[in-house]
Amino acid sequence: MKLKSNIATSDNGFIFNPSTGDSFSGNEMAAQLLSAMKSNKTEAEIKQDILNRYDVSENQLDRDWDNWMLQLKEANLLEI
């Protein structure tokens, strides 16, 4: 799943969709994930980076990732 190419993000987690005018505020983790996704890292690379840096199980991370993807999809921020 790729973030739409025109989505604007900032370092503090603010997200703006210039096609719809929708805007969202994310936390620090959201900002990191968006930055990684915009730099075209794969899902596996992003997850591995999180596993390396945070005390989280792989199962928990998978569940959180699925939830993150669902939120992005509902917010119409992912390429179809």
């Binding site: 025109n6 210039p18 096609s19 719809t20 005018g21 805007s23």
Partner: peptide
């Protein structure tokens, strides 16, 4: 193009943001 962000009781845009689609 502009998306209305705040609409008055008369339906007028009191705030808005430019969008491109």
């Amino acid at each position: 193009a502009m998306r209305k962000l705040y609409i008055t009781d008369k339906g007028k845009a009191w705030a808005g943001v430019t969008i491109k689609d």
